[in-house]
Design a protein around this nucleic acid. Structure first.
Lengths: 208, 208
DNA sequence: ACGATTCTACCTTCGTGTAGGTAGATTTCT
DNA sequence: AGAAATCTACCTACACGAAGGTAGAATCGT
């Protein structure tokens, strides 16, 4: 809430945010050391306090930015389409593209899902914006009759999760199974599968 | 590696293991306090050292047990079937049932995926056994011609991930969206979706 | 009695938060 | 314009709590 007027300060703040996202993504909130964040930026640890009053606030800023950016990207994709199925595919494509471009975000979300009581009080303080996007699109599809009736959160669990795994697991399944999540061929191959599954999940008629 | 001969000791060791799984699941390795593990068992913290020489070793034992148990359960399910698709569905059902019955395991695996370099050296030290199960079943299906050619790890990322999310997310999507992952109706509804997606993922012909 | 098991007490490390200082840029006042 | 006052953007140094590890004593069971 500190008014940052000068350009240099704003740049530093941004640099801290980015460095923090990387550090938090690698090892999680508790293990993450502000020392490392500062080192990555090229400043001393206490200087971080000038911009973020404590570790938790810094983390919150990171998480908030992640979901806000992801939401923005998804909206951009959705807006280009009319039919519910196309909107849904666009939404999921938006997520996939975002996570592939920003794998640190993927890891942070992945941890968030693992936590038993993330942000005590409202676990969806920052993620809610994304969940609502899904609800809107899915509910519209169901209302129009293009989708079979299914809980929007099932879509999140079933197909939303896969993009996270695709990104997080790329270097983690053993050296012989590793792949490059950002490789165009690899990515498009996975995207096809994602679309296939999504269509199958919402399709109204159950084929033979 | 310590030889535990007496029954009492073996029981304590098991109790520590179970308590540790819960604590590690809730907050992750670093945040987890051995103090809490001891309290849950009803002993003092230093007594843990009698069974597990340090925190890391305790954690490793937890993780190893999770994957070994999950593998056992999956094998049990697979053995009942012949056709690749049925084996695959049985494998995934085994995972789902295991995770629903043992949600702490789900959270621990979820964190494992988030970590950038889990168990330095070999990230799949304990999980490899599960990945191989999937490879065997999927490769067989592909070889026989029942499945279209697709990387086994895509199956893991695409459909394996969903069960983890289903379990972890149950109380985490906001109070109005929460559900009981162990509720029979809820579970069977999700299982149907899981099967639907799995069939879609491996189906050889792409229907109109 | 003797090993198995659990305890108390202490040490050490690590990382955050905080207090307070300073160089240099920016604004204010005359 | 130029000195005075103020602000920005960092810094060094330290206090403190939290948690893991360790040494060695006490107790339990057979």
């Amino acid at each position: 809430m500190k008014p940052i007027r000068h350009a240099r300060g704003e740049a530093t703040r941004q640099a801290i945010l980015e460095a923090a996202e990387t550090v938090f993504a690698e090892v999680g909130f508790t293990t993450a050391r502000l020392e490392d964040v500062a080192a990555a930026v090229g400043i001393r640890r206490p200087s971080i306090v000038y911009y973020f009053s404590n570790k938790q606030e810094l983390y919150d800023a990171v998480e908030e930015d992640i979901f806000a950016s992801m939401h923005r990207e998804a909206l951009g994709h959705i807006a280009l389409h009319d039919k519910p199925i196309d909107k849904l595919l666009a939404l999921l494509d938006g997520w996939l593209d975002f996570l592939v471009a920003r794998p640190t975000a993927a890891r942070i979300i992945q941890r968030l899902v693992a936590d038993v009581s993330p942000r005590r009080g409202d676990p969806t303080q920052f993620s809610n914006i994304l969940l609502r996007d899904v609800e809107i699109v899915v509910n519209e599809g169901v209302a129009v009759g293009d989708f079979r009736p299914l809980p929007p959160m099932h879509v999140v669990n079933a197909v939303g999760s896969s993009s996270l795994f695709y990104v997080c697991n790329s270097k983690q399944l053993g050296s012989n199974r590793s792949y490059d999540a950002a490789d165009p061929a690899e990515l498009e191959s996975f995207r096809e599968l994602l679309h296939l599954l999504t269509r199958a999940a919402v399709a109204p008629a159950t084929p033979g």
